[in-house]
Design a protein around this nucleic acid. Structure first.
Length: 675
DNA sequence: TCAATCCGTATC
DNA sequence: ATACGGATTGAC
């Protein structure tokens, strides 16, 4: 009904009596006088185009894809022209466009289609999704003379993939075939340059490419590699943190067809690239790819939708492999590019599990100081002879709750019963909810007065390792204080997942601490996410042939830990996907989470959901800072019923919006689902 | 009898 | 949302 060029609608249009829409007082455009406009209103029941007459004076500017303002329900709202048609199907009289804001085409028809498809899939509205696709206008940038292009001729294609399957894939790209691949990149791969080589193959055929990476740090790496491989001026960078003017300039360069390739974060997934030939995503398991604003689309799903619609090539590259990526391989939609077990042993550092002999801990003073298993400590000690060592710890302050030294009961705030934590060694323990400092704490269970930290943040680990290795410099890196590179001299680099600096020549070893803490998170993706973080850290270490080692401190029998020791992301993804099939979780099924106060959820149990369907809950969500966080209802249907579920959810939201009830927080196949 | 107010409905 | 219309209510 809303898609811009579907055939039944065209026929319906022919059937409608084409009445020369009541001749307006002053002239309307002679040809295609009706503009179908997507108006910027957030109401779910108004999520469809509205028709307006195009005044003659706006005929040239108000083309499909341009910004306009219109009078809607009595007020001025901004909108985007979806298409121009000869006549309206609307029974009543039409209003006229109030203003053609700019002749710039900011919403190409293919992107408009994509926005609609994404909104449909996520049970959201066009106006919510189009905000992600079209950045705010910056008139100064629009008026500015475009920078003269510095782009030279494209260099010849470069072989890049080490894997034979990978080279076959990029050769097929170079022939212009819409091939799709999931690549499990080994530690030895130069990922940015390999992706750049794929983009080059596509650009050489005169087509465009969209590449999405999780964060600004990755954007910088890929940007450098793209300039190296493609030459200057062949691509733009597009991220939200460029600032309004630079972001709009990059967006316009693509929209005007001056540049055909883009690398960026979430903001780039909808980029207006002409003649799209390739979409690519790096590390699709990173939760930064999940949009935090309604309707919470995931970059991977946006790009896959785009690839299907454009009939173009697609690449999902990552060290680890998500269940969703493995599902694409199993269903035959994409080919897998991976190394066999023998090749992996040389392409990744050698992995082992530390901590198997805890009794040795008591005898080694240094190990005791660092609270580290002896075998792990020995690997670190030996590796420090040859270069820097990466120590990965769970996020600083992450779940750092204190407990009673004697009985291990979690320590609670005397005032509000919140968990006690300690952000640095010199600050007093305080409540994580209300901030009350615990001056004279006593355990409520056993009366003990001493606190222990079962979880150790980055700060404390750095301090303890410094004591264990007094002669070696210790540097820290976390999200806020980000070091991007360290040189190849021996040092300890303590970092949280995702914030690990790259080391020149690679780390001699990585020590992955407190693995049980990551694995203890009560979430759907706990194991997958743990493997992803550990493999990403391992990828920064020299391969086994150059002496690279990875030590995980944890349970050797855990499949997630084994997957990292064997550097086997594909085997792990297969196993995890099989588990999800058994447990009925995405991507084996389609699932929606609905969050609201309990009394809003209860009536939903009686709704006519698409069958077959399973309702889970509602269950109360864990309270946040002592406040009630409402409840959650989960609706689960077979995968092929996904569209019906999304349609039912949109209808639900439309009805609520019509009755002026608040919209529910609905997420389709949410990135994270705690239980 | 008229205005103030409430509710329902459409928004092109 | 916001604007409008029709029904409803209450005061003169």
């Amino acid at each position: 009904m809303v898609s811009t060029n579907d055939v039944p609608e065209q026929l319906a249009l022919l059937r409608t009596r084409v009445r020369p829409t009541k001749v307006a007082p002053t002239g309307v455009a002679a040809s295609l006088p009706v503009a179908r406009v997507a108006v910027d209103v957030p109401l779910a029941h108004l999520d469809r185009p509205f028709d307006y007459l195009v005044p003659e004076a706006m005929d040239a500017d108000a083309r499909p894809g341009t910004r306009v303002t219109v009078r809607f329900a009595g007020r001025q709202v901004s909108g985007l022209v979806l298409e121009r048609v000869g006549a309206s199907e609307h029974e009543g009289s039409l209003g006229r466009l109030a203003r053609a804001v700019s002749p710039e085409v900011v919403l190409r028809p293919d992107v408009a289609r994509l926005v609609r498809q994404v909104a449909d899939r996520c049970a959201g509205t066009f106006s919510d999704v189009v905000r992600l696709a079209v950045p705010p206008r910056h008139a100064r940038v629009e008026g500015r003379e475009p920078k003269p292009s510095v782009a030279g001729p494209l260099p010849p294609a470069q072989p890049r993939f080490a894997e034979p399957d990978g080279q076959r894939w990029v050769d097929a790209l170079a022939e212009g075939r819409p091939v799709r691949a999931v690549w499990s990149a080994p530690a030895t791969a130069d990922v940015p340059r390999t992706v750049a080589a794929s983009v080059l193959a596509v650009l050489r055929r005169g087509r465009g490419a969209v590449v999405c990476v999780p964060d600004a740090h990755d954007v910088a790496r890929f940007d450098t590699a793209f300039t190296d491989v493609l030459g200057p001026g062949q691509h733009v960078v597009l991220t939200a943190d460029l600032g309004p003017s630079a972001r709009y300039a990059a967006f316009l360069a693509l929209a005007r067809g001056q540049v055909r390739a883009v690398v960026g974060t979430r903001a780039a997934a909808f980029a207006p690239v002409h003649d799209l030939g390739l979409v690519a995503i790096w590390d699709d398991g990173d939760d930064l790819h999940a949009e935090p604003r309604a309707p919470y689309p995931h970059v991977r799903e946006v790009l896959l939708t785009r690839a299907a619609d454009a009939g173009c090539a697609a690449l999902l590259a990552a060290h680890a492999r998500t269940c969703e990526a493995q599902h694409l391989v199993d269903s035959g939609w994409a080919v897998s590019i991976e190394l066999d077990a023998t090749a992996r042993r040389t392409a990744w550092p050698r992995g082992q599990v530390g901590g198997s002999d805890d009794r040795a801990l008591a005898r080694d003073a240094a190990a005791q100081a660092a609270r580290l298993p002896v075998d792990a400590l020995q690997v670190v000690r030996a590796a420090l002879e040859h270069g820097p060592v990466l120590v990965q710890v769970p996020r600083a302050g992450y779940r750092t709750a204190l407990s009673c030294q004697r009985c291990h009961e979690p320590a609670r705030c005397e005032r509000c019963q919140g968990p006690l934590g300690q952000s640095s060694p010199d600050t007093a323990p305080a409540c994580r909810w209300c901030g009350t400092v615990a001056e004279q704490w006593r355990c409520r269970e056993c009366g003990g007065a001493r606190l222990r930290a079962p979880v150790v943040g980055r700060g404390r680990t750095a301090e303890e390792l410094g004591r264990a290795f007094p002669s070696v410099p210790v540097v820290g890196a976390s999200g806020e204080t980000r070091t991007t590179r360290v040189d190849g001299t021996p040092r300890l680099v303590v970092a949280t997942p995702g914030a690990e600096p790259h080391a020149d020549g690679g780390y001699a070893a990585a020590l992955l601490m407190d693995t049980w803490l990551l694995l203890a998170r009560p979430d759907l993706r706990t194991a997958e996410e743990s493997v992803r973080r550990w493999l990403n850290a391992s990828a920064l270490v020299r391969p086994a042939g150059e002496g690279g080692r990875v030590v995980l401190v944890g349970d050797p029998a855990d499949p997630a830990i084994q997957a990292v020791v064997r550097a086997d992301p594909v085997g792990f993804a297969r196993r995890e996907l099989a588990d999800r099939q058994v447990a009925h979780f995405p991507p084996a099924v389609r699932l929606a989470s609905i969050e609201a106060p309990l009394d809003e959820l209860l009536p939903l149990l009686d709704r006519p959901w698409p069958q077959p369907c399973e309702l889970l809950g509602p269950v109360a969500l864990p309270e946040q800072r002592g406040e009630d966080a409402g409840s959650r209802l989960v609706v689960r249907v077979p995968r092929h019923r996904g569209p019906a579920l999304a349609a039912a959810l949109r209808e639900l939201q439309a009805g609520r919006s019509l009755r002026k009830e608040p919209t529910l927080r609905v997420r389709v196949d949410p990135q994270s689902l705690s239980f």
